[in-house]
Simulated scan of single mutants.
Amino acid sequence: MQISTKFTIAVHVLTAVQYFSGTYKITSDFLAGSIGSNPVIIRNIMSQLREAGIIVVKRGPGGITIDRPLAEITFLDVYKAVETNSEENLFRFHENPNPACPVGRNIHRALDKSLREIQQHFEDDLRRYTLADVYDEMVEAVRIE
């Protein structure tokens, strides 16, 4: 399994917005320079973060602001905002196991509980971390460099 770069880009966006807020006008072009990505990709991710209620985007001189404290934004919030398949199960089950085969007939029953538990652990782990954790680590790294 691999999560796309959208998750880490979104965390980078939010961390940069918090860090540079009040110092610079935060735009998709500004963020793209920090992230090393195309501004269109940043705008798409920002749109997803806005739809999830994590940021507010104001045209003109307003720029981007974070809509709630970083300590209230979990990794799960960001993941669900930007990963297009986040509402689906982590594991996709093959659709046509052979019902005439004893393994094919019973594989769902044998695997489903384990896969649900793995999904739950993944989501629980994402809930444990907040953007405040990342921001604090980043500020400390800037301080000691």
Rank of each mutant, 00 (worst) to 15 (best):
Q2E: 11
I3R: 08
S4C: 06
I9K: 09
V11Q: 04
V11F: 00
V13A: 05
A16I: 04
V17D: 00
Q18L: 04
Q18S: 07
Y19D: 00
S21R: 11
T23L: 07
T23E: 12
Y24L: 00
K25C: 05
I26N: 00
D29T: 13
F30H: 05
A32I: 03
N38H: 11
P39N: 05
V40W: 06
R43E: 05
I45W: 06
M46F: 08
S47G: 15
Q48D: 15
V56I: 12
V56P: 03
V57R: 08
V57D: 06
V57A: 15
R59Q: 11
G60T: 05
P61S: 14
P61Y: 07
G62V: 00
G62H: 12
G63V: 02
T65R: 12
D67S: 15
E72Y: 15
E72S: 15
I73R: 06
T74S: 15
T74H: 14
L76P: 02
D77I: 02
V78Q: 05
Y79W: 09
V82S: 03
V82T: 00
T84S: 14
N85K: 14
N85A: 13
S86C: 01
E87H: 11
N89W: 12
N89I: 00
N89T: 13
L90T: 12
F91Q: 07
F93R: 13
E95Y: 12
P97S: 03
N106M: 01
N106G: 07
I107H: 10
I107W: 10
I107T: 04
H108V: 02
A110H: 06
A110L: 09
L111V: 10
L111A: 14
D112P: 01
K113A: 08
L115S: 06
R116A: 09
E117L: 11
I118P: 02
H121N: 10
D124E: 12
R128K: 11
L131K: 05
A132T: 06
D133H: 15
V134N: 03
V134I: 14
D136P: 05
E137I: 06
M138C: 09
V139E: 09
E140T: 14
E140M: 09
I144L: 06
I144M: 04
I144W: 10
E145H: 15
